[in-house]
Design a protein around this nucleic acid. Sequence first.
DNA 1: TTGCCTATCCCCGAAAAACAGGAGTTTTCG
DNA 2: CGAAAACTCCTGTTTTTCGGGGATAGGCAA
Lengths: 205, 205
Amino acid sequence: MTIKVFIVDDHYMVIEGIRSLLQQEASIELVGHAMSVDSCLSFLRNQQPDVILMDINLAEQSGIELSATIKRLYPGIFILGLSTFNQQSFIRKMMDNGASGYVLKNVTREELVDAINTIVKGKLYLSHEVARSLRAAEDPEVPLLTRREQQVLTLIAEGLTNNEVAEKLFISPTTVDTHRKSLLSKLNAKNTASLVRIAAQLQLI
Amino acid sequence: MTIKVFIVDDHYMVIEGIRSLLQQEASIELVGHAMSVDSCLSFLRNQQPDVILMDINLAEQSGIELSATIKRLYPGIFILGLSTFNQQSFIRKMMDNGASGYVLKNVTREELVDAINTIVKGKLYLSHEVARSLRAAEDPEVPLLTRREQQVLTLIAEGLTNNEVAEKLFISPTTVDTHRKSLLSKLNAKNTASLVRIAAQLQLI
DNA sequence: TTGCCTATCCCCGAAAAACAGGAGTTTTCG
DNA sequence: CGAAAACTCCTGTTTTTCGGGGATAGGCAA
C-alpha cells in the first residue's frame, strides 16, 4: 500500500525539491501538487491523497486557514505543515487547525519520510528542532489578549492617545487607560514604547 | 561554454528543487552546493563557479553578509539573491552588498535560467515581482538615521525614558529629547508609540 | 452560588513625553 | 575653506502616561 502524497506550496522549486526527495521512496507516491488554494481544493474534489504537505506561507491565504478548510471537508486527510521558520506561534496555530505534524524546510529526506509515515498512522510528528523550540518557547508565552485589549493595542501602536482611542471606540478615556495598563502588565512592558516593540516582536500588531 | 552554478541554501529541498529545475538546462552546470557559510567558503577556496545562487536567510549568518565576503574575495563571481519574501529592505541590502540580481523562490524554470544568463553577462536581473515591489516601495522610503538617532531609537524601544537613555549614552536628557524629536519627524510619527511601530516595520529595531 | 474574567468607569499625584522655541560646537564633505 | 549636517544643550508650557487606588455589572463555569 503506497501512501498518496499531495503538495501545496507556491514555490515551484520547493515542489520540485520535495518531488526529488520522495522519488526514491517506493512506499510514497506523489499524486500531484498545487500552487494556489483554488487549485488545491479543486484537486481534492476529484481525488483525496492520504497526506498533504502544506506550506504555511501561501501567497493568498495562509496555510493555516487552508488546513482548517481541508480538515473540515476531508477529515481523513492528514496534513503535515511545512515552513521555513521555526516560530512557535505558527506551529501552534497550524496544529490547532488540524495539522498532524510540522517540519522545517531544511529537513533531511529521512526525516521527511519518517514524518509522512508517522502521521499517516494518525500519530503526531514534530521534527526535533521544532519540538525543541516549542519547549523553549513555553516560557515567553504569548499572552492572550482580550478583544478590547487587542483593539486598544492596535490603536496605541498607530499613535493615538488615550483620548483619541476612547473617541474611536466610544468608551471613556479612563477605560482605555485601564486596558493600556493591563497590556503593560500582560506583555511585561514598562512603558508604551517597549509595549509596542514587544507587541511587534510577538506579531500582535 | 557552460555556466558553472553553485547553490548556497540551508534547505535541502530547495537545493534539490533548483537542481531538478536546472538539470534539463544544457548550458548550465551545477558544480555543487553548500548548506553553511563555512562549507561554502571552503568550496570556493578550491573552485570558483560563475554564479552563486544565494539564499538570503541562512541560519547562521545572513546571505547578505556572506555575499559581501564572497564579492570581496572573488569579485568575478556573480551572485543571485534568492528569498521567499519580497521585502525591499532585504533586496536593497543584497544588491548593495554585491549581488547582481534577486529572484523569489517561486520563480519558474524559465525565469531562473533567464536570470542566470543575464547576470553572468555582468548585467543586473530583478524578477518582475521584485522590481515592481521595489518601485512601489520607493514612496515610503526608509529615512537614513544618524548613528546617535539609531542608538536613541533602540534604547527608547527597549523602554528606557529620556533620562535613562541620557545616562546610558552620557549625554543630557534634553539632547535625548532633541534626538527623539528628530526621530519623530524623520519617521513621520506623532508619538513614541507610533515611532516604535514604524521603526519595527522598517526593521530599524 | 460563588467566584473569576471582561469590560466599564472614576480619582489622584508624580513622572514622562510632546510641543515650541533658540543656540552653540563639532564633523563631514564638496 | 565654507556650508551643511550632526550633535549638543537650554527654557518654558501643555499633554499624556504611569502607578496607585476603588467600584459596578454581565457572563460563565466550577
